[in-house]
Each structure stands twice: as structure tokens, then as C-alpha cells.
Write a protein that binds this DNA or RNA. Structure first.
Lengths: 196, 196
DNA sequence: TGATAAAAAGCACGATCGTGCTATTTTGTG
DNA sequence: CACAAAATAGCACGATCGTGCTTTTTATCA
């Protein structure tokens, strides 16, 4: 009983690495079995189907994401400071993976093919964006951002900058410290604080 | 002689559709052959390898992109107006495909697997970004944007907004007219014009 | 410790992939 | 119109995919 869960976790750890550095569809049961030194069927019996494996990987990633990104932020009383801390942690999550975010590739890969994986990715993404929106709105409500600020628009721009940072690193227009992201984020916040 | 080129173009047209709505790797020679009503080997002989097919699709897409996006813009003397026209056309390109951009999925899919396809995608993307940067810089030089504007940072933000728009449509945070994109773009330009 | 259930492995299957080789059809040209 | 050349089709191959079935190994607990 305990053994199964343990190996399952070990499998998922490796699986997440592979799925992150390649993609969720490229994550093949055969390759994964080799990577964790198991037989194909032995590994397979843990998940019963590839779709279940993909879902399990995403769930594993989701847990890890929460752990890394939201750790400690609830103790920060200022919504705006909470937001900046979240963004810092967000970049850490990014770095901790092989410098790519599995949700980015998964959302691009499954945006057009319906199924449980599609639904989970869209759901997780929406939840995260909503969490950001709530935080931004809290900052507005506490007058840390100016009242005219559109929280949803704010988060759209924030998330865009995050996406862009990864793409730009790829073509060498952004460094691996995400400095352009940081500059733009600071600018965005300063702007919406209304201090000018 | 003429026949080969013609069927090749017809193949590529369908191939681009398929690669856009799914992805470049999901574009399978067998499926493509069915779609264009040819035999697998008959189609294959046009390209000699799958990699060549993918490269040909990208080249076809690139031509189409230039045609749609840069059409007429060189007659616009004002760099800033040229830039906004480019962005308008850019969205048209986006819409004309099945509301997704093949370069976005291709860059995510091939960012980690080396080869000619990887190189071409990175190259095309870099060329486009550089073209945008040059245009922005021209606007700065002609005092249509304020002299402190960082052209590269500007384009990073612009491209990010483009990326974000697609993602946000997917989760329903952006409408299919890209209104959030347009709002953010207007804001970006206004900001960098220094008028406040 | 020995019985029993769970976990892992072994093996095989049908499908699909990219890609050669050979034959047939279609095209362009002297 | 004939004939060479080019385009397409037919067919088969080895590999790899996901996934069942059966057997063997390993872990759990009375």
C-alpha cells in the first residue's frame, strides 16, 4: 500500500522533468519506464492509461506549483507586496523546472484537442489567473493601486509578460534572469499605483 | 515541371491548415495524404523527409505571413503609423489561420529539440522581432516616440501582449476581437509617446 | 512465518509512424 | 504521336506507440 504510492511519486517526479523539457505528448510510457528503470507494463499498471498518466503529471506539477509559488505569501498582509512576492516565486517555479513552464507548453499543445487533459490545463490556468486577479483587486480595494485600475486587464498584461519572457529568452532577446520581465512588471505596478 | 510545383503548393496549403490547428509534429504524412487525396508515397516524394515537409510548411507560412502582415505598410511614411498598421495586420494573420498562430505552437514545440526546424522557427521569429524593433526605433528617431524609449523593451512588451492574447482567449479572459490586446497596445504607445 | 494480495515483469497484439523500393500512370517535348 | 522523364501509387520494412493478458516477484499482515 505504501510502496505503491512511493514509486508512483518517484515516477511522477521523473515524468514531470521529461514532460517539462519536452512535452506532455512526447512523454512516452516506454521512455519513462526506461528512465525510472521499470518495465513498461509495470509502470503502466500504475496509471491504467496514458491520459491518466498525463493527468497525474499535471496534478503533481500543480501541487509543486502551489508549494513553490504560494508558500508564505498568505502571511504578507499588504496585497501589493503579496503580489510582488507571488511574481518572484513564479519566476522561481520557472527556474526550478528546466527553465520552461509545463503549463505553457501544455496549454499550447492541448488547446485544440478536447479531453480531460485539455480541461485540467484550462482549469488550472484559469484558477491561477483568478487568484492573481483577486490579489490585484485586493490591492485596489486597499488603495495600493489606483481605483481606476482594471484588475483583469492588469493580470492579462502580467501574464503576457510572463509568457513573453520565456519566448524572448529563446531567441536571445531576454536574459535568463528575466530582467525585461522585471522591468516591465515594475513599470506596470508603478503605473497602476497612480503616483507617476 | 509546372505540375509538381502546383500540387506541392496545394499540399502545403492543406498542410499549413493542419499544422496550425494541431501542431507541426502532429502533422502526419499519412493524414496529410488522405486530406489531399494522394498516396502516402506519392506525397512523400515531394519532400523526401518529414523534416523537409515541416520546413516547407514553415516557408509557406512565412511567405503568407509577409504577404498579409507587411502588405502596403512600406507606403506609410510615419513609422508609428506603420507600426500600428503592422499590428493590425498581425491580428489579421492570426484570425486568418484557425485563430492560432503556427509560430507560437512551433516555437513552444521545438524550443527544446535541436534541428533545422528549430533553427528556422527561431530565425523567423528573430527576424520579425527585429523588424518590429527597427520600426519602433525609427519612430523614436523621428520623435514620434520619446527618446528614452527602449525599442527592444517596447517590442518585448508588444510581443508578450500578442502571446498573451491567444492564451487568454483560450480561458475566456480575452474576446476574439483581441480587445485587451488593443487596449494594452494603445496604452503602451500613448505611454511611450511621452504625452501622458 | 506463511498465506494472501499487491506490484512488477514478460510477452504479444494491432495501429501508426517515417521511409525505402519497384511498378505504373501521367506529363511535357522533339 | 511517340517516348523519355517526371509524378504518383503499391507495397513492405522496422520501429515505436498504447494497452491488454498471464506469470512471477515482492510486500503486507494474521
Amino acid at each position: 500500500m505504501g510502496k505503491a504510492k512511493k514509486t508512483r511519486q518517484q515516477i511522477l517526479e521523473v515524468a514531470l522533468q521529461m514532460a517539462t523539457s519536452r512535452s506532455l505528448s512526447d512523454l512516452t510510457i516506454g521512455n519513462l519506464a526506461v528512465a525510472v528503470d521499470m518495465s513498461k507494463s509495470g509502470l503502466f499498471s500504475h496509471f491504467k492509461s496514458k491520459e491518466n498518466l498525463q493527468l497525474a503529471v499535471l496534478e503533481y506539477a500543480h501541487d509543486l506549483f502551489r508549494e513553490i509559488v504560494t508558500i508564505g505569501v498568505f502571511e504578507i498582509s499588504s496585497p501589493l507586496e503579496r503580489l510582488t512576492q507571488l511574481c518572484d516565486n513564479w519566476l522561481n517555479w520557472y527556474q526550478l523546472q528546466a527553465k520552461t513552464c509545463i503549463y505553457i507548453s501544455a496549454s499550447v499543445e492541448f488547446d485544440d484537442q478536447p479531453g480531460l487533459v485539455h480541461d485540467k490545463v484550462a482549469d488550472d490556468l484559469a484558477k491561477w489567473l483568478n487568484f492573481l486577479i483577486v490579489t490585484v483587486q485586493a490591492a485596489i480595494d486597499e488603495n495600493e493601486l489606483k481605483p481606476e485600475t482594471d484588475a483583469k486587464q492588469f493580470v492579462y498584461e502580467l501574464y503576457s509578460l510572463y509568457l513573453g519572457s520565456q519566448s524572448m529568452i529563446w531567441v536571445g532577446f531576454e536574459d535568463s534572469y528575466h530582467n525585461r520581465f522585471k522591468v516591465a512588471l515594475t513599470s506596470l505596478i508603478t503605473r497602476e499605483r497612480g503616483e507617476v
